[in-house]
Structure formats: structure tokens, C-alpha cells
Nucleic acid binder design. Sequence first.
DNA 1: GTCTATATAACGATAGAC
DNA 2: GTCTATCGTTATATAGAC
Lengths: 199, 199
Amino acid sequence: MVTVDSAAVARQGSIRRSPARARIVTAAAGLFAEHGVGGTSLQMIADTIGVTKAAVYHQFKTKSEIVVAAVEEELARLTAVMDAAEAEASAECVREALLVRIVDLAIERRRMESALVGDPVMVRYFAYHQPFRQVVDRLYRMLTGGCGPEAQMRAAMLTAAIGGAVMHPLAVDLGSDTVRAQLLDLARGFLDQSGDRSG
Amino acid sequence: MVTVDSAAVARQGSIRRSPARARIVTAAAGLFAEHGVGGTSLQMIADTIGVTKAAVYHQFKTKSEIVVAAVEEELARLTAVMDAAEAEASAECVREALLVRIVDLAIERRRMESALVGDPVMVRYFAYHQPFRQVVDRLYRMLTGGCGPEAQMRAAMLTAAIGGAVMHPLAVDLGSDTVRAQLLDLARGFLDQSGDRSG
DNA sequence: GTCTATATAACGATAGAC
DNA sequence: GTCTATCGTTATATAGAC
């Protein structure tokens, strides 16, 4: 049974940073993406970076803490992307810059992205984790410029589409350049749709 | 370590069906969606349906075989939906009927859909499993009417968007009726986009 | 089809030396 | 920061009775 307990979050309040911890989190994120959270053992993480389990446990008291750290890193990546995009002049430029950066992020980690974020354990954690929801809220406002269910769903679909498409069976045979170009093109079109349809 | 070995697929060539097997697969699919494939044990499956592990092993020689059976069921569901939609008269009606049914499927199993299909183990399995790719290929042709990378990516994004949005942090607080309505509306708009943008 | 019982291995986690 | 060694638990999987 795999659950991310909230105690693991609290315990990590002040984010300690060290090369050893970073190595662990990086290795863990890759393994989570390949085998899922539940399918990744501390032994696998330890083997990947060439240490023993005990060395890992010296940095993280529980496996849950490693999951939380991986999520935190994902969060930081998204926040950085938004900060960078926000430097643009107009609202439209902000949106365009953000879109490009998000697509690039997804492409860059093509064999990881959807896998890490798509894991049931992660999905459930993300959905009810306040800090993550704040980041997602900011993201959707920057992307859609609006608010309310329609804008929320538009942003939800767009981010799910970008993250999911890069690992999609229909895309595995396509080169990264093709995927990026199509992703950007179709995403722009999706955002440009006037919201005044009535179905 | 959790992998779906191809031997498990071959071994199951002729799909045996029985109430006992169906009960196991149903319980397993729910648990996979909640805890991931790697986070689900045979003990959990056995407990859910109120039998012992040995009873489960009598029906499936390995855990991998249960995963394959769950995938096969997912495949059958998708195929049924496409068969039903294909009964429509015009190509446009086929697409619309298919869209409605796919959205309904996602809504109906809202707490499961993205979770089951999003699991890293599943994603990797789907991406390289031939029978699944054939189903996905048929799906994308029915949805987009076209072919080539642009149509492929459009279908990939759309199916990822629908499956991913229902469990998205931005959607968890929205009622199923709202989600369904927005999903349908935005999906229609996405498919209606003329493909002749140049970015 | 389901059970009890068991084999063998891996799991998360801890103690204490260096 | 990393090690060896170990504890208790759980995992997958099998044998054989009913």
C-alpha cells in the first residue's frame, strides 16, 4: 500500500538542500516515471546512484518524504517557468511565452513527464495538495486570462493534453521536433477559441 | 520492480472468461487506479473480493496476467464505443457520437479513468502493445478523419485531454455535469479548428 | 473454485561503526 | 555521508486438501 502521508510534508517544512539529497531526488523521479511510485523501491533508488539503502535513509526518513521532495521539485520547475514568462510585456506575450516554455518542458522530459505526473499516487497527491493547487491556479489564470469553470476546464484540458500527448501511443513514433511544433500549433488554436459556443 | 512481460500476453492468447476471473479483473482495475499497478498487491485484490490469494492465483498465474486482462477489458470498452458510433449515418455524426461516448466513459469512471490509464506501467504497456495501438489508430482516424502527424497529434492531445482533465486538480471541485458539458464543448471546438495554421 | 500452509525473496526502516 | 547487519512485515508464488 502506497500513500503519501501529510506528516511527510510537514516534516519537510524547511527544505534542506544538499548534493546527496539532490542525487536521490533526481534518481527517484526517473524511477517513479518508469515504474510508478509504488513500483519503485528504495533499493532501486540506492542502486541507481550507487549507494546503499541506509545512505538514502540518512537523507530521507521515509519513502513518502522522497515522493514529496520530487513533487516539490516539479512545483519549483513550474513556478520558475511562470516567473520567466511573467517578465513579458503584454498579457498576450505572457501567455505565448508560457505556452512555449511548458511545451519545451514536456518535450525535454518526454519519457518522464506524463509518467511521473500521471501516476495514480501523484494524481491523488496533486489534486489535494494545497501548494500544488496554488501553482496550478496561477497557471490557469495566466493561460486563459479568465476565471470560472469554463476557463478552469480549458486549462485542465490543455495541460493534460500537453503532458499526456508526449507519451501517447500516437506520438511515440514522431520526432521531438514534430511533436513540439504540432503541440504548440494546436495548443494555440485551442486557447484562441472564442469561449462563446453553446452546446 | 513491476513490468508487464510479453509472456503474460502470449499465455493469455485465448481469453478465458468466467465470473471468478471477471470479479478479479474488476477489483484489480479499481485498485490499480487508486494505488497504481506497483502499489497494488494480490493480497489487496483478494481482500477486496473476499477470497484468499491462492484463489486469485488459481485464475491468473502471475500478477502480470491480471494487468494484461485489465488492459484487454479497457480495449474492449473502447472498441465497443467505436462500434456503436460507427452505426451513425454521416462521417460527422460518427465523430460527434464517438466524442459523446468517450466523454461519457471518462465521466462515468471519473475517479478511475486517468488514474488507470495514466499509470507509468500502463502508459509504457499501451505505447508498445500492438493490439492497443490498432485500437488507438482506429480511434484517431474516426475522430480526425485525416491522417499524418497533424491528425495524430490532434487525436493524441484530445484523448489525453479528456482522460486527464476529469481527474485534474482544476476539475476536482467541479460537478460531473459541468465537467461533461465543458469537456464536450471544448473538445468539439478543438476538433473543428481548421488545420491550416502556420506557427 | 476456494481453502490452509508454506517457501523464498524483497520490502521499508533502524542501529551502530567508520 | 556512507557502510554492514538486521528486524519485522509483506510480497509473489506454489503444493496439496476439500
